[in-house]
Computed example of a mutant assay.
Amino acid sequence: MPHYPGGFWRRLLGNLLDALIVGIPLAILSLLLTGHTDGNTFTNLLSFLYYLLLPVLWAGYTVGKRIAGVRIVKLNGENPGIGTMLLRIVVGGLVYIVTLGIGLIISAFMIGLRDDKRGLHDLIAGTYVTTEPPQ
Rank of each mutant, 00 (worst) to 15 (best):
L120E: 04
N79Q: 09
G39H: 13
I111Q: 04
V63D: 05
P134N: 13
L17W: 00
N44Y: 15
G39Q: 11
G83E: 13
W58M: 14
Y96K: 10
G6T: 03
L13C: 04
D115E: 15
T37Y: 11
I124Y: 03
G35Q: 09
D38S: 13
G7M: 01
P5F: 03
L54F: 09
Y51S: 15
L53A: 10
G7Y: 01
L20S: 03
A125D: 02
L49C: 07
L33R: 12
V63K: 09
L46Q: 13
I21C: 05
N76Y: 14
I67P: 14
V56M: 10
V90Q: 06
I106P: 08
L75G: 12
P25M: 01
G119V: 04
I89H: 05
L16M: 05
D18E: 03
D38L: 14
F48G: 12
S47L: 09
L26C: 04
R66Y: 07
G64T: 04
A27V: 03
G77L: 09
G103N: 00
V63Y: 06
D38P: 05
Y128R: 13
G126S: 11
N15H: 07
G60L: 06
G126P: 12
A19E: 04
I28L: 15
M110H: 01
P25N: 00
H3V: 06
G6P: 00
S30H: 09
G39R: 09
G69H: 08
V90M: 11
P5Q: 04
E78V: 08
D116C: 04
I24A: 12
M110E: 01
N40I: 02
G7L: 01
I111F: 07
A19K: 07
V22W: 01
G103T: 00
F42C: 13
Y61K: 05
D122W: 00
Y51K: 15
T127F: 11
L100V: 15
I89E: 07
G101N: 02
S107T: 13
I106K: 14
N76E: 14
M1A: 14
G93N: 03
R88T: 09
T130C: 04
V90T: 10
I102F: 03
D38V: 14
T130I: 01
L53T: 09
L120I: 05
S30L: 10
L123A: 04
V95C: 06
Y96S: 14
P2F: 02
S30E: 12
D18V: 00
G60S: 06
Y51I: 15
G112E: 08
D18N: 03
L113C: 01
N40T: 03
F48E: 11
R71W: 01
Y4S: 13
I24G: 10
F42R: 11
H36I: 11
E132T: 02
V91K: 05
L54D: 07
G126C: 10
G101W: 05
F109T: 07
L45P: 06
L113P: 00
F109D: 08
P25I: 02
P80W: 10
I21F: 05
L54S: 08
G83Y: 14
P5G: 02
L49W: 06
R66Q: 07
L45I: 10
I105R: 13
L100C: 08
